[in-house]
């Protein structure tokens, strides 16, 4: 017999039949379990092999790219170090110090320079532009050393604004510095020709300013 259903079945026994019908008899049904085909059949023809080795993954272009970028960064860093330190050691870039002894107080240095400038009277020889350039440099140098801000890198307006913002000098002195620096700008950049006494007056004003602020803490 082939069973085309699955489950647990009770097979009925054979019955006897006479002319009257089926004869009742003692009977014992057989039991049979029909299962679905869900068993995995092992292939015994195959042999047992060892564990596969670790597969090698080929590097992609992106994995190389990060090394290239890293190399470029390192090269740029090396070039920067070379330019900044090694070149300067070789003397390619030399900065001549303005003052050989930086422990000289700012006002001493400034006054010395101003008196020297006044004594030269270079404006009389028609070199007013150079005179004004030196004058503004001495004033900005003094401001930078005395009041600790980068006056030498600032324009005249920025210097005056900084003096006003920090309130480090009296308003009158701020106006004086403003006046001196702006006239100097006109001489330097606009080829203005002020009167001769203006130059001497500006040097005197600068000397007075340094004297007035030399004790500033």
């Amino acid at each position: 017999m082939k069973f085309l259903s699955y489950g647990s079945f009770a097979i009925p026994p054979a019955f006897l039949q006479d002319d009257q019908g089926i004869i009742q008899a003692n009977y014992t049904p057989g039991k049979i379990m029909v299962r679905l085909q869900n068993e995995v059949i092992a292939d015994t023809t195959l042999t047992i092999t060892d564990i596969k080795p670790i597969a090698e993954v080929k590097p992609s272009i992106w994995s190389w790219l990060k090394y290239v970028l890293l190399a470029m960064v390192l090269l740029a860093l090396a070039y920067y170090v070379y330019k900044k330190y090694l070149k300067s050691k070789e003397g390619a870039i030399t900065v001549e110090p303005i003052s050989q002894e930086l422990d000289i107080p700012p006002h001493v240095e400034a006054l010395e320079e101003l008196y020297k400038l006044k004594a030269n009277q270079s404006w009389r020889s028609g070199d007013a532009k150079e005179f004004q350039t030196d004058l503004t440099f001495i004033i900005k140098r003094y401001l930078e050393r005395k009041f600790n801000f980068g006056a030498l890198e600032m324009t005249s307006d920025e210097v005056v604004a900084e003096l006003r913002r920090k309130k480090i000098t009296a308003t009158t002195w701020t106006l004086v510095i403003d006046d001196v620096l702006h006239i100097a700008d006109l001489v330097k950049f606009a080829k203005a020709q002020p009167e001769d006494n203006i130059h001497e007056e500006f040097v005197d004003k600068a000397i007075d300013f340094v004297d007035a602020t030399k004790n500033y803490k």
Binding site: F15, G30, R35
Partner: peptide, 23 residues
Amino acid sequence: QSVSIATPQKDSILFGESTVVSF
């Protein structure tokens, strides 16, 4: 009385598998 017994050759078979049942 008469006794009748049905006996399968296997007590467990797969779906569609042939087996002999004796009555």
